[in-house]
Design a binder for these strands. Sequence first.
DNA 1: GCCTTATTGTGAGAAAGTCAAAATAAGTGT
DNA 2: ACACTTATTTTGACTTTCTCACAATAAGGC
Lengths: 161, 161
Amino acid sequence: MTEHFDGQEAWAAALRAHGRRVTKQRLAVLAAVERHPHSPAESILAAARAELPELTAQSVYVVLGDLTDLHMLRRFEPPHSPALYETRVGDNHHHAICISCGRVEDVDCAVGHAPCLTPHWDEQAKPMTIQIADVMYQGICQDCQQSQQLPSNRPSEEIEK
Amino acid sequence: MTEHFDGQEAWAAALRAHGRRVTKQRLAVLAAVERHPHSPAESILAAARAELPELTAQSVYVVLGDLTDLHMLRRFEPPHSPALYETRVGDNHHHAICISCGRVEDVDCAVGHAPCLTPHWDEQAKPMTIQIADVMYQGICQDCQQSQQLPSNRPSEEIEK
DNA sequence: GCCTTATTGTGAGAAAGTCAAAATAAGTGT
DNA sequence: ACACTTATTTTGACTTTCTCACAATAAGGC
């Protein structure tokens, strides 16, 4: 429970640094996101309610949105998934999503420090000032690859017609 | 109107090649996506109804989903936006989205032919078999940059508090 | 032309998130 | 410690985007 305090204080300091009040709702959301990276709002609500049962869904949406704007959290939206949140910000890491089971893994960028941040514009295109480059790898994780090669092992959860 | 026929026949052939029946709904959707790249389902419905007024929204969703699975269309989901569709498939181009006005532009990949397709895995991570790498650049387009520097020029549509 | 079955239409409904306004509580000053 | 100001949270209704099940229709092979 003492390591908890460290985290609490660190988050509290960050909140104050951004001119935000330190509320138990924000602390609960931050702790929940930290403990469950790559989670949607609903899961964060459930996790945060473990320590703050009266927390409401709206508060989670508001807090997540605000903290994302402050860059204390990072949001990304994989295809066919609600938005996911994580506390790992500031680096420009990317994400790999298994299109079969939905598992998400962090991927450090291969290309130096600011990867893919310099798109190659057409002649006629008016270049934008790029701020971030979200790279979303989609593939099949090892577990799903195996269970697809052994179709006998597969329950009836997702069979193609 | 003759160029229309060429497109119709090309799409019809592609549909047959994928074992799909050639329906006026599918042709209308394909033509609409081709004429309005980076459009959401609702806009595609509106555009397609210009030539097929009795088309329904459900059909558009079904057709878009199916043709996307066949890789005749490509879908991508920018943050805070419904899914967008385009007919440009097969190449691995990416997209730049203006976070201010939402405009989308195609971006050819800077890094050779199969860009960013080789993520750099952690030691402990179990690598996935990557199939596609969707790169989503987010920035501010030239128009929005200018209108933000001349705040007097900005109507009341989106003012920060 | 007819028949089979893929495709489309109909209507209900879920999921994820948003908005406005009232209730609460953090931080400030006393 | 107490009160006050206003940020924050809650409440509850609502929107948007998309999905599902099943009935109606029509494309393509015979």
